[in-house]
């Protein structure tokens, strides 16, 4: 579930408000957006990919709220880790071109 919207990093572009498929965020006039409906979060991680400044953190726990500290997440280099792994963002190259599913499927067939 979405747990962190970093006030320090957020630039109020409201991209998360626009792209969240379950409308979890809400725009606030003259301020940064808020996580308005946390329980509607479906833990799809899409907001992390579309946030240009890595201000969002979604825990992999889909069913429950889990308090996480921003400082700990930053220390573990997790803020923005998903965006980095798919190669989205300035100066990066999409890792879709490194997709080795074809190798995985081939070996899975041989294994089973």
């Amino acid at each position: 579930m979405i747990e962190i919207l970093s006030a320090e990093r957020c630039i109020s572009c409201n991209q998360c408000v626009r792209i969240c498929p379950t409308n979890v965020f809400q725009e606030v006039e003259n301020d940064i957006p808020i996580i308005a409906r946390q329980s509607d979060c479906q833990t799809c991680f899409m907001c992390e990919l579309y946030c240009p400044v890595d201000a969002l953190y979604v825990t992999p726990n889909a069913d429950g709220i889990e308090k996480v500290e921003e400082s700990a997440v930053i220390e573990d280099r997790l803020l923005g880790s998903y965006r980095e792994s798919v190669g989205w963002g300035k100066g990066r190259k999409s890792t879709a071109s490194d997709d080795e599913s074809f190798l995985v499927f081939r070996i899975a067939r041989a294994t089973n």
């Binding site: 991680f45 825990t59 992999p60 997790l78 880790s81 998903y82 792994s85 798919v86 890792t95 490194d98 997709d99 080795e100 599913s101 190798l103 995985v104 070996i107 294994t111």
Partner: peptide, 25 residues
């Protein structure tokens, strides 16, 4: 445990968000 060392990196590259969940925990 049926995935040997050689295929593990390929699995990561095939399914980044599958591993994201494990890495975070």
């Amino acid at each position: 445990d049926k995935a040997d060392e050689s295929i593990r990196q390929s699995m990561r590259k095939a399914q980044p968000n599958f591993f994201l969940s494990f890495d975070r925990l």
